[in-house]
Design a protein around this nucleic acid. Structure first.
Lengths: 371, 371
DNA sequence: CTGTTAGCGCCTTCAC
DNA sequence: GTGAAGGCGCTAACAG
């Protein structure tokens, strides 16, 4: 029924071993023989049996890319770039030595993250790329460290992209971390320079590295400017805001969604009607923040400035164009892909920090003197 | 080094076959024995060898999801939904009978589409879901039909999601097609009802079913209103517009990108400065169209109405909120996932058409009497 | 309900 | 440069 290596060998009048060598290309074979074999492959329309070859060779051509949310371009851009580097060699049609880059959507769930890793381990994946921020739950960190160590042990190359290095994990080939802290800091400095003093902050979900680092940058900028810590009196999403004076209660947490940005901004505006700026955890959240500001009858940036993070493609098209922090997502993803393939040498110490660039646009402006 | 089924069997004092049965769960095993085996599995930290089991069983637990552009939420939403249905059973941690849903990014390239299909065939994938519009090139259609037939032959379930059925292909489990034609028609009818008579159309890339169907709906609405065919004098992207009177030259093609929308709209405005509305191939393109309209010093919707297609999450946040056509992407993706898993019975004839609903919002309004 | 026996299709030493 | 043989780890009949 299904064509096997032996069939090809028979037709090409060589041994199965020779066919295998031709197909894998990592062994000298006479040009004429190779030709004959390839013709037989085409004639018979032979397709290699992946599981069989993985079993025999104890390694597969699968490369897993884990993302937190596949519907979010933040991840899509990185994953697409990585995939281009991994399976990119267009052309041949016959599918030669390509790797199969597969993206797995964890939905931000730690269980699913682990499950996918197990599934990938089960497949004897050649490499795994973990994208985006990590959960900071201690139990999960231990579980992840253990799991990644096992993967590495079994020969899987592990690369982190947009995620800080796992403490004490020598199992990892490389980690490319975004400078979220620096970007967050520069963004808030920009606002302070414009003259803002009362700045609301819509943070991402709790216990995520990305959330924490961006927020830390924000707080660092405030502290450097001699402004108080807005996190005191902090509450979750629509938590119990105490609306005290100063910078207090000006940080609200929520998921990385438009809706969260909308609701959190409403809450911030309620707590501090004299707010002159809102910084969002990312661009998507910023869009929701913009909508909330407008729905309150306020103008952007005249009454309230709004800023995001990531510089996703749609951000420049927002009205007004969104001030944000640019992350080189495509470049980072591509680099992670090459690292996973072993076609790029890891940075010294296996760790590289990727800079985040401030993109000052029309959604931020000096605050009005009074309101 | 690596622990195998036999090791587990030894520790649980049963035969390898029994361990296999416990793990696969599709065979009666005494509760006590099962317990013993599972404990041994945990003790030894055993992970099934996927390739070996796929080889022996002649089928794998891989399900492929092909998308044209992973950075586009249109695909991300469908893929995420499908993946939820496929690998969703949260929990266990030990990764039981889960399937590994993997998304493959073709980037819209026909070669890569075929290559991925071959790779999936090589892995003996359990199912394949093809999302989004198809290329209408005859050669590619033949190649695809052949390839899908082979996949089906080898036991892979093939499901189409957002793509019309392949003519004469009985290999396909089901195809869920969006009513792009109807949606396109209703959208343009909405504009006509508002009073628009001179409507520009930024179409998607040539030779794609999605592009063609949406455009056909647009043209049908115009024809029904007794308006001429705008496609005559049609040109590619920044093609040779001849700027003739009536509806002529009011269709421009380009990729599904923001940039294409921007440039095509500029071109349309140049060809027909008296345009009162622009319909875009999708929401992303519409965003670019909005930017172009504004850059020309025109207001939306007072001077020019703009409409999109898909109703992606960001569309409601555009300013003004974008009039568009809603496609139930999540629901469609989820259904495709269930169809691929065999947990939902295919629609009669294997074909279902999914309706597209007009979302009239603020970006469209009656044209001004004069301009 | 459980054990035994054969392969699944390919890669990889080892000879020639 | 090529062939022959063994085994990768698991599943799927069969027996019992």
């Amino acid at each position: 029924m299904t064509v096997t290596l032996a069939d090809v060998a028979a037709r090409a009048r060589v041994s199965p071993a020779t066919v295998s060598r031709v197909l894998n290309g990592n062994y000298p074979v006479a040009a004429a023989t190779r030709e004959r074999v390839l013709r037989a492959v085409d004639d018979l329309d032979y397709v290699l049996n992946g599981p069989a070859s993985s079993l025999a060779a104890a390694t597969s051509d699968l490369v897993g890319i884990l993302v937190n949310d596949i519907a979010d371009p933040f991840f899509g851009i990185m994953a697409g770039a990585a995939q281009t580097e991994i399976g990119g060699q267009e052309g041949t049609g016959r599918a030669g030595g390509e790797k199969l880059a597969v993206v797995c959507n964890t939905g931000g769930s730690p269980e699913r993250e682990l499950t996918y890793l197990t599934l990938l381990q089960r497949q004897r994946a050649a490499a795994v790329i973990l994208t985006g921020g990590a959960l900071e739950d201690p139990g999960h960190i231990v579980a992840m460290t253990t799991k990644l160590a096992k993967l590495a042990d079994a020969g899987t190359r592990v690369v982190l992209c947009g995620r800080p290095p796992l403490p004490g994990s020598d199992a990892i080939v490389a980690s490319l971390a975004f400078d979220n802290r620096g970007g967050g800091r520069r963004l808030t400095e920009h606002l302070l320079t414009l003259g803002h003093r009362k700045i609301g902050y819509v943070a991402g979900p709790l216990e995520r590295t990305t959330t924490r680092h961006r927020l830390e940058g924000h707080l660092a900028a405030l502290a450097a400017a001699g402004l108080g810590d807005p996190a005191s009196g902090e509450g979750r999403s629509t938590g119990s805001g105490e609306g005290r004076a100063g910078q207090e209660g000006l940080v609200v947490h929520g998921p990385y969604s438009r809706r969260s940005g909308y609701e959190a901004t409403l809450e911030l505006l309620r707590r501090a009607p004299d707010l002159t700026a809102v910084v969002a955890a990312n661009d998507t959240v910023a869009l929701g923040a913009c909508a909330a500001v407008r729905d309150q009858g306020l103008r952007i940036p005249e009454d309230v400035s709004v800023a995001g993070f990531d510089d996703l493609p749609f951000s420049v098209d927002a009205t007004p164009a969104l001030t944000t922090v640019r992350l080189p997502l495509y470049e980072a993803g591509a680099r992670a892909g090459r690292l996973a393939m072993g076609t790029e040498t890891p940075p010294p110490g296996g760790i590289a920090t990727i800079t985040a660039e401030l993109m000052a646009r029309a959604s931020t402006a000096p605050p009005r003197a009074t309101r």
